[in-house]
């Protein structure tokens, strides 16, 4: 089991003919993701390098392929429009990889999505994506010889670092949620090397206004019977991690581990005066670490110990 995406998820790529879109569509396809096509306005009717159909609109792509997830690689100025187009076409899982989307665009997008009767799940923007690992096959050279059997990788993360529970020495799976891309890979790699599998890993992105929050993901992992532990990676700024700590204390019985990046970062590089009021004292790494520890979370103080903290929280080591 997993959360949000699995081997049956039918994925399209918005921006499939752009350089990043093409490169990562290929990566996902080779991983074993069920990629069913893509969208580039004006290039409908053609095929991409993998032989996948390209459509002019998301609506058409959904109608022809039955897509139920999309990954967005369009340039920042087009990202808000791409998210809204996917939502209007009824796609339930929208993963926006694009970095550099204007904050005001995202405020409007969230307001529209939050007002929808069937609200889609938005991941990102400015995120690595979401992955539910599948068992490795030893292949990975092409879509017909995929890296995994029944995995679903939607995004830019390197696939090989992830482990399916069936190939994990400790026989347990953890859910990983993180604001940072590369730091997520670090955490995944550490858990894999210690013999843990991952049910699903979600990179929620580091932008101030975004889709899923830490709490949303922890809630999903908490409900998933095959997620045995939860690893959360946060950083300085905002109060998402503090809210998550309160949530864990009240609702989560599963083992939870965490790491907060930026304990030694020089303060106040980005905050304006009015922002500092709203941010309050809760957005330092130490405040977050204290709140998490008070909620019974095993906090790694060194980024090298994220996996170890997870194993410790699960009482496996």
């Amino acid at each position: 089991m997993s959360v949000l995406v699995n081997a049956k998820t039918r994925v399209i790529c918005q921006g499939i003919t752009g350089s990043f879109g093409a490169q990562h569509t290929k990566g996902c396809y080779h991983y074993g993701t069920r990629v069913v096509g893509g969208v580039t306005p004006g290039k409908g009717g053609t095929k991409d390098a993998n032989g996948l159909p390209v459509f002019d609109t998301v609506e058409r792509a959904v109608r022809e392929t039955g897509a139920d997830a999309t990954m967005i690689f369009v340039p920042p100025r087009l990202a808000a429009d791409a998210i809204l187009e996917a939502a209007a076409a009824g796609i339930p899982v929208i993963c926006a990889i694009t970095e550099g989307v204007p904050v005001q665009d995202m405020i409007k997008v969230r307001a529209v999505l939050d007002g929808m009767e069937k609200r889609p799940t938005l991941i990102g923007p400015n995120c690595p994506g979401i992955i539910t690992p599948g068992p490795k096959t030893g292949g990975g050279t092409s879509g017909s010889d995929p890296y995994t059997n029944a995995g679903c990788k939607i995004g830019i993360m390197p696939g090989y670092i992830h482990t399916h529970v069936s190939q994990a020495k400790l026989g347990k799976s953890v859910g990983i949620v993180s604001r940072s891309g590369t730091l997520t890979y670090e955490a995944v790699w550490q858990t894999s090397r210690l013999g843990l599998g991952q049910s699903t890993c979600i990179g929620i992105g580091g932008d101030p206004v975004r889709g899923l929050s830490h709490i949303d993901c922890i809630e999903l992992f908490n409900m998933d019977p095959d997620t045995h532990g939860i690893l959360m990676i946060g950083e300085i700024g905002g109060t998402d991690e503090i809210d998550a700590a309160h949530y864990v204390r009240q609702h989560v019985k599963k083992p939870v581990a965490a790491f907060i990046a930026g304990r030694t970062a020089p303060p106040g590089r980005r905050m304006g005066h009015a922002g500092a009021i709203i941010g309050g004292a809760d957005d330092t790494a130490d405040a977050k670490i204290r709140a998490l520890q008070a909620a019974g979370v095993e906090v790694a103080l060194s980024p090298a110990d994220m996996g170890v903290a997870m194993v410790k929280a699960m009482r496996l080591g």
Binding site: S178, R179, S180, G181, T182, L183, T184, E186, G206, I233, E235, I236, F259, A261, G262, R263, T264, A265, L301, S302, P303, A304
Partner: peptide
């Protein structure tokens, strides 16, 4: 020299953890 802001911050953290001082981010 690091890729990604989160990993860059974590790298600064671990350098300090081992008694070093980063010259930059």
């Amino acid at each position: 020299l690091v890729n990604g802001a989160g990993l860059a911050m974590a790298t600064m953290d671990i350098i300090k953890h081992h008694g070093g001082e980063p010259a930059n981010f």
